[in-house]
Design a binder for these strands. Sequence first.
RNA 1: GGCGACGUGGCCAAGUGGUAAGGCAAUGGUUUGCAAAACCAUGUAUCACCGGUUCGACUCCGGUCGUCGCCUCCA
Length: 503
Amino acid sequence: MALQLYNTLSRSLEPFEPQEPGQARIYVCGMTTYDLCHIGHARAMMAFDVAVRYMRFAGYNVTYVRNYTDVDDKIIARAAELGEPPLELAKRFCDALDEDLASMGLIEPDHSPKVSEHIEGIVTMTASLVDQGFAYAADSGDVYFAVESFERYGKLSGKKLDDLRAGERVALDPNKRNPADFALWKSAKDGEISWESPWGAGRPGWHIECSVMSSHHLGESFDIHGGGIDLIFPHHENEIAQSECAHGTHPMAKYWLHNGHLSVVERDEAGDWQQIKMSKSLGNVVNIRDVVADMPAEALRWVYVRTHYRSPLPYSSEALHDAMGVLARLYEAKERAQEIANTAADSDPSKLAKESAKAGELYKLIAGFRDAFEDAMDQDLNTALASSLVLDVVRTINRVSTDKVTKRRGAGLMRNALQVFEISAQVLGIGGMEPAAFFAELREKQARVQGVDVAWVEAQLQARLDAREAKDWAAADVIRDELLKKRIVIMDSPSGVTWRIQV
RNA sequence: GGCGACGUGGCCAAGUGGUAAGGCAAUGGUUUGCAAAACCAUGUAUCACCGGUUCGACUCCGGUCGUCGCCUCCA
């Protein structure tokens, strides 16, 4: 099977057929950089991160563009509040965003254009729309796109101009011919950041930058345009209008992909989930850096990956804790597989599979893994299914790791099994760490979160080890119970003692 | 008012017409000095409800109820 994507334009699943075979061009609406990136934004970033990773995995040569909107009303307002030049504020948050996304293991786009660097192109496209009669300059110095001039207006969102309840929620603007007309260019108010234009000093409207930057990097008609579900209208609808009118080509993009929203949920007194709004005033905004400071970033990725990108995602700290536990199991399996791969003798895995039923089970699972994984991802990037296939392998590795035949001669088999983690790491961004590094990071971060003194723990562990060597089980157990009270769990194994903080 | 999405075991969550993956939690067991981890076993799921199409529907169609999103800035 080949990749199929759900296209918002047709509201159906379509086979992915890029304009140029083997080459995929994708544009994703990034962030308006007036604040830190929170886990809701991160979901969108993750959805398209995985999409691009998978397309590359599947053999496409992908050109991936994700913009920063660094000129915007909210940025100007925030900058005024803080007494900071708007572009400096935007730059600060662009850098913070880069840092946060890198900490989550997101791949970098091939191009990350900023509005402030494309003003000339924006003026040119706006002028072209005015010249062609698709836009008009009002006396105020604002330039508006005339939605009635574009017959396909509404094709993405399914909205009809007559149905839009103009003026109901926002005061009508007397400068506009139709209330649905939107600004391509906004005249500068006193002291605002502005650029010169044929219509006087001003700055770009909200939607035009994406039309300009996408065509700049990907051409007038490209393959995939992505963003959050909330952007369908008006943002993407308006992008289509601008681009297709300015260029006289269509479609602007063949496939429109939209990720569902994340919502924060908490348990109420009855134990039922209650949806709560993530907002500054409630003080419950969860930023990427808050999460990544407390645990390995893959835990957060796991939360995203476990739900299909188009479904709503209920987020809770409980889900994040579950994810940490699952990842620990995954890395323990990887560690077991590595140990056998490093210490066992080599033997043809197919022969081993005949000698031991357990080895045979793993052999079979691994042999079919890549196809099954691709089938899952081909179904509109079904990471929920794909990730559960990884867990199937994890369970089977754990089961086989006690098998005598495998322990003795299973190096080859386990090397094959380890490729599953490589695929998972490549596509989902999960499972690529060295197990020891994962556990060290988990322990270090959780120790800080829970206020545990690592040196003290190590000392306790040594004392317990001494007691155990003396077979003084009672003393050893007292120490273990003491540690457990501080949520430190001890795990004895033939290769030594490890510990973990209960999450 | 318009457009759209969702409702699957205690919870989360896949499911591409042929009676339901995976995860978490729970219980029992194997293992362990005892634990932890791991593994094994255990879930009668009226797939919101009511009709329809079909040999057969969680899956398609219509309706009802409920939750949510967009129509203003929003990932």
